[in-house]
C-alpha cells in the first residue's frame, strides 16, 4: 500500500517539523531578552573604552541614530550626553579596503570633533602583522587620541610612508593605511552633518 506509506511518512515528517520548530521558537523566546541585553552591553562596553563612563549619564546604547555615511552605507551613531549637554559621539564606521576585507571601527569624537579614541571592533587582518590595530595587541590605535582634522593638517592624515604622521607596521602598510583613511573620511563626513546630536533617536536595541 504505497499511498498509505506516503501518507504516514508525510504525517510523521510534519509532526517532526512542528516539534523541532517549536523547540527552536521556544528557545528563541527564552533567550530573546538576554540576547538583546548582551548586545546592548557589548555596545556600552565598546563605547566605554573610548568615552569614559563618568563623562555621560544617558542611556547611550539607545540614544542612537542611523545615517547614511560617506560610503553610502547605513551606520549607527551613538550620542553621549551629560544632563542634556552634548558630550560625545561614537560613530560606527569601517575601512572597506583592509588587507583582508572590511575593518569595522568605532570612532568617538567630542562635540568639537576632536577624537576621543578609535577602536577596531571586527577585522580579518593577518594575525601578528595587521592585527596590531587591535588595542589588545598594540597601542597604535591610540595614536588617534586627541587629534582633529583642520584644513592645515589634512595632508598629515596618512601613514608615514605616504608622507603623513601615522606609523605603519613592519610588513603591513595596507592595514594602517586603510584605518587612517577610514578615520579621516569619517571625521570629514561627520563635520558636514550639523544635526548629529539634535536628531531624534531612531535606533538602538529597543527598536
Amino acid at each position: 500500500m504505497p499511498i498509505k506509506n506516503i501518507t504516514r511518512s508525510s504525517i510523521i515528517l510534519t509532526l517532526f517539523a512542528l516539534v523541532t520548530t517549536g523547540l527552536t521558537a521556544w528557545t528563541f523566546i527564552l533567550t530573546k531578552d538576554r540576547i538583546a541585553a548582551e548586545k546592548e552591553n557589548a555596545i556600552v562596553r565598546n563605547i566605554n573604552q573610548i568615552i569614559a563612563a563618568n563623562l555621560y549619564d544617558n542611556d547611550v546604547a539607545n540614544d542612537c541614530i542611523v545615517r547614511q555615511n560617506h560610503l553610502q552605507k547605513k551606520t549607527r551613531i551613538f550620542r553621549a550626553r551629560q544632563a542634556q549637554t552634548n558630550v560625545a559621539l561614537a560613530i560606527e564606521t569601517f575601512a572597506p579596503d583592509g588587507y583582508s576585507g572590511r575593518i569595522d571601527l568605532l570612532v568617538a569624537v567630542d562635540s568639537q570633533f576632536k577624537i576621543l579614541g578609535v577602536r577596531t571592533t571586527a577585522h580579518n587582518e593577518t594575525p601578528g602583522l595587521g592585527d596590531k590595530i587591535e588595542v589588545k595587541k598594540s597601542n597604535w590605535i591610540k595614536s588617534f587620541n586627541g587629534l582633529s582634522i583642520e584644513p592645515d593638517n589634512l595632508q598629515k592624515w596618512a601613514v608615514r610612508k605616504d608622507g603623513g604622521m601615522f606609523d605603519a607596521f613592519t610588513g603591513a602598510t595596507i592595514t594602517p593605511r586603510a584605518v587612517v583613511n577610514a578615520v579621516k573620511d569619517t571625521l570629514l563626513w561627520a563635520q558636514q552633518q550639523p544635526d548629529l546630536f539634535s536628531q531624534a533617536a531612531n535606533c538602538g536595541v529597543e527598536q
Binding site: 523541532t20 520548530t21 523547540l23 527552536t24 528557545t27 528563541f28 533567550t31 538576554r34 540576547i35 548582551e38 548586545k39 552591553n41 557589548a42
Partner: peptide, 17 residues
C-alpha cells in the same frame, strides 16, 4: 538543525563574546 539553532541562541545569550 533545531538543536544547533538552540545551542546558537543559548551561546549568543550566555557567552556572547
Amino acid at each position: 538543525a533545531s538543536l544547533v539553532t538552540c545551542v546558537q541562541l543559548i551561546m549568543n545569550a550566555y557567552t556572547y563574546q
